Amino acid sequence: MVAARQLKREYEDEGATLKELAARHGLSYYKVRRMLVDHGVELRGAGPVPWPAPDGMVTDYVVHGVSIEHLAWNYDLSFGVTRRMLLAEGVELRPKGERANEHPDRGFH
C-alpha cells in the first residue's frame, strides 16, 4: 500500500487531485482523503478556482435577472464555473428556482 507521505507529496507538490491519487494507487477517493487528513494535509477546495467573471456577467445576473443557466450558455461556460465566478465576485445568489426578469434579449453581449 502507498504511504501517506507519498500521497502528501503528490497532492501538495505535484498538484494531484484526490480522484487522480485514488485512481493512480488503486484506492477509494475516501481512503485517499482520510489518509491525507490523518497526515495533517490541508485539503484544497472543491473544483478549480475560477478566473474573474467576464465583463457584464454580474450585471446580467444582478440587474437584469438572467439565470445562471442562461449566463453559462451565453458565456460558453459550465453552470458550475459560472456559479463559482458569481460567488467569487461576491454576488448573493437568488434562491434555487427563483428567476427574475429572465429575457433572452436583455443583458446579453
Rank of each mutant, 00 (worst) to 15 (best):
A88Q: 13
E92C: 03
A4K: 11
Y30R: 14
A4D: 09
L71S: 03
F79S: 00
G45M: 09
R106D: 04
E98Q: 14
M35K: 12
V41Q: 02
E10N: 04
H25L: 05
V32D: 13
R83A: 04
D76G: 09
L77T: 13
A3Y: 15
R44I: 03
D60C: 10
G56H: 13
G90S: 07
Y11C: 00
L77Y: 10
H39E: 15
V62W: 00
L18V: 12
L86I: 01
M1G: 08
V66R: 14
A4G: 03
E10R: 14
V37S: 00
A53V: 04
G47K: 02
H103E: 05
H25E: 05
H70G: 04
A23E: 15
S78E: 14
A53E: 06
D76I: 10
L87R: 15
V62T: 07
G56W: 13
M1R: 15
T59Y: 10
Y30P: 01
V2G: 05
V91G: 04
L93D: 09
K96T: 07
A88L: 06
H64L: 03
D55H: 07
G15L: 06
E10V: 01
G80L: 15
D55M: 04
V63R: 13
V58N: 12
V91Y: 12
R106E: 08
G15F: 10
E102I: 03
P52R: 05
